[in-house]
């Protein structure tokens, strides 16, 4: 069983972070980042993040397993049809990968292969259903497997996105399809975190809150302009602007969010963008 699942079931507050596969044939840069994440419970391995072509996340996740880390393999529907996704999943199971985060995936238009054909044969909900089917001993076409894999499967949520009814409907579909946990997009408002955790509380699905380290005012403005579903509120922008040391202020803000998460959620997913060394500071109670 996945260590992450065990911890969440035991009611322990979990910390996850992220490693991006390198753009090259040597896994060393990813392992170097992972070395700075010794104190987190699980490490997300991104899948051609931002639609930019990089090393296979399955390979990186396996290398992390060999080094004693617990990976969360991110799997998007952008680059593989249902056959490729299922065979990837069986392969991941064989390689000792136990946690997944299934995503629809960014459109290739954002990435470095703009001319590539977007696949989207499945969406994140259908992929989740497909995984549950594999676990029951059958593939998506109904053929029997000779051995069935087992995964702890998360899905994404953007609690701040509007219109809320519509966004919540998709969350409900993910719950119905059997998501084991949610990892959220960064949320900067305690009210929004509270509303989301109330909405899913009845289902007892663990929520791992996305926490971004705002390194500067410029970065916060970039998030507001460029990242869908992420809204850094005015008062935080002002705090970053007024601060003598905006990075220190960013750490303080992240720490406040971790405090909300301890109250309202079951863990945090830290996005520190190269400042993994600041994680202990962010997590100080």
């Amino acid at each position: 069983m996945s260590g992450l699942a065990e911890k969440l079931k035991a009611g322990r507050f979990v910390i996850t972070a992220e490693v991006a596969p390198p753009k090259g044939g040597d896994v060393a840069p990813a392992l170097k980042t992972a070395e700075k994440l010794k104190h987190v419970d699980a490490i997300n391995v991104t899948d051609n993040q931002g639609a930019c072509m990089r090393m296979s996340p399955v390979a990186v996740a396996r290398c992390l397993v060999e080094e004693g880390f617990e990976p969360i393999l991110q799997l998007t529907c952008r680059d593989r049809n249902r056959m490729a996704l299922q065979s990837e999943l069986l392969g991941a199971a064989a390689l000792g990968i136990k946690n997944l985060l299934v995503l629809t995936g960014d459109h290739p238009r954002f990435g470095d292969h703009k001319a590539s054909r977007p696949v989207f044969d499945l969406d994140s909900i259908q992929l989740l259903q497909g995984i549950r089917k594999l676990e029951s001993g059958f593939d998506m076409a109904g053929n029997a497997l000779i051995s069935s894999p087992g995964f702890f499967v998360g899905t994404a949520a953007a609690p701040a996105a509007e219109p809320q009814d519509l966004v919540l409907q998709k969350i409900r579909k993910k719950i119905a399809a059997g998501t084991d946990f949610f990892q959220t997009q960064a949320v900067f408002s305690r009210t929004q975190v509270a509303a989301f955790s109330t909405a899913v509380r009845a289902e007892k699905i663990p929520v791992v809150l996305g926490v971004v380290l705002l390194k500067s005012l410029r970065m916060a403005e970039f998030l507001n302009d460029q990242i869908p579903g992420v809204q850094v509120p005015q008062d935080l922008l002002k705090r970053l602007d007024d601060a003598d040391d905006s990075l220190a202020e960013g750490v303080k803000i992240a720490r406040e969010m971790v405090t909300w998460a301890r109250d309202l959620c079951q863990g945090v997913h830290l996005m520190t963008f190269g400042r993994e060394d600041l994680i202990p500071q962010i997590m100080t109670e």
Partner: peptide
């Protein structure tokens, strides 16, 4: 843009397409 059948993706912002 992705031909999704189960609702909007995470790229939807203020009701517009990513």
């Amino acid at each position: 843009a992705k031909g999704l059948l189960n609702g909007p993706c995470g790229g939807m912002e203020d009701g517009y397409c990513e």
